[in-house]
Design a protein around this nucleic acid. Structure first.
Lengths: 256, 256
DNA sequence: GCGCCAAAAATTGGCGCCAATTTATTGATT
DNA sequence: AATCAATAAATTGGCGCCAATTTTTGGCGC
């Protein structure tokens, strides 16, 4: 750095030789197992808002090095899933009450539009996927709270996928996560995130191509979730990161 | 790391001593000057899609160290403003044609909802801010293409601010940037991003609290932008990072 | 017993170094 | 002369070390 070269103006660019990375090797940080693990733990509410994510502990838990953990945490901080405080570390993001309400308002806007687009684009493949998911949700073991939470989120993601807009899909993913954090922060404990029969209703309306009905049902469903939280503040500590992530890893390998 | 301690179970947590980071020191990576500089350069189209962002060059340009640059690039990659390819480096993101269309579709949804919310919440302060911006846009030097592009984006950001939803505001910011990238990638060169009189029209409708009209004008405005791009592929190279960022830094310090 | 102050431990932040990969240059071959 | 292969240069990726800050621990006085 700071070489004392005499400002060698680069040659007249003899041939660009295709320095453009057209469509290569697009693997994203989202596929990183550390990122995935933390996201899974949060959406399943094993990691609660405010929980500290120590770099050394995470590195040990995931069996990797600290620099890798830091990259993952930085990414999660960019997505407002993790809050990083200088010299203090990373914590699971805890939204303010206003922010929690903003998340639900954004979901009302985006998911009503999404469900409409999904109906417009609905084809054979989409119908099959939707039916498959609805069966999964109907038959799943309701005692497995973690599986329930995953399925619940995946329904909304599936609708976003059916809409066929990658940008909206990413936004929906982000909003699902932030909803998890909002609910985990402000919920009255014990209640599920989604009322159990809202998803079958919405799914049926989509399959029937009843756009007005589906939009209305989706808005009602989101409002129902929103009304379940209250502006209080719950405090809780979580540790034993190792155990949590080892179990998640085992599930992932087993195909959960 | 890997100390051979006998699994000392932590004591029964005598007092949590408030390990929760309630509301401290929330400065975000978004305030980072490197991030700001790159974002400004992109939204002003000084950095074109596909341009390489070399770590050493950026470090020299910003007068900082490489590790700092890497953090900034990682953050920008999380926000899909920069594309990072393993072992090859970071490039200004170049959206696909489908992705560009998705961005405009998302903007139609979000910004029509945003302008409606802005009208609902419009108060004295908001009116003043809107009028002030409209004057700025009317009087500004149209020959200063970089200032024009900044003002153009700021109008949409202002509307999002008036809506009073931080989540939607962040999404609008992201969509503005991705719009810049989409237009820069697929535009016919020479035309401005926004037609010049669309913003005054929309602003007037907001001030008149004409919700239906404002929504319609906003949708039309976005569709107009969308119809200005075509699925081609322009190739172009940009270098001289140092000059670009030094000039941006000088402007920022001078209050631009 | 409670709170304040100082020392020790733990954690994060950052820099330098070096290996791995890619990119550019040079030289040989058809 | 153009193509391809081998070498050299440049760039990114990652690990270890150490400084800076925070958190905990221990001790003292009120």
């Amino acid at each position: 750095m700071k070489r004392s070269r005499p400002l060698k103006r680069k040659t007249k660019r003899p041939e660009p030789k295709r320095p453009e990375p057209e469509a290569v090797d697009l693997r994203s940080i989202d596929d990183d197992p550390v990122v995935q693990g933390i996201l899974t733990a949060i959406s399943q509410k094993r990691l609660k808002p405010g929980a500290k994510l120590g770099e050394d502990k995470l590195a040990a838990a995931f069996g990797t090095t600290r620099i890798h953990i830091r990259q993952a945490l930085a990414h999660l901080a960019s997505r407002k899933v993790v809050m990083q405080i200088p010299n203090r570390g990373a914590f699971v993001y805890r939204p303010s009450w206003e922010e929690a309400q903003d998340v639900f308002a954004a979901r009302r806007i985006i998911e009503t539009a999404t469900v409409a687009a999904a109906i417009d684009r609905l084809d054979k493949t989409g119908k099959a996927a939707l039916k498959a998911h609805m069966e999964l949700e109907a038959k799943h073991d309701r005692n497995d709270r973690w599986a329930s939470l995953s399925l619940t989120a995946e329904f909304h993601i599936l609708v976003a996928k059916l809409a066929g807009n990658k940008v909206l899909l990413d936004m929906s993913r982000e909003l699902m996560l932030r909803t998890s954090l909002a609910i985990a922060t402000f919920e009255q404990p014990g209640e599920p995130d989604c009322s159990p029969d809202a998803h079958p209703d919405i799914g049926a309306l989509i399959l029937a191509r009843d756009k007005t009905g589906a939009i209305h049902a989706m808005r009602h469903h989101i409002e129902e979730m929103e009304q379940r939280i209250r502006p209080s503040e719950g405090e809780d500590e979580v540790d034993e990161l190792t155990a949590i992530f080892q179990e998640i890893g085992a599930r992932a390998r087993a195909g959960g």
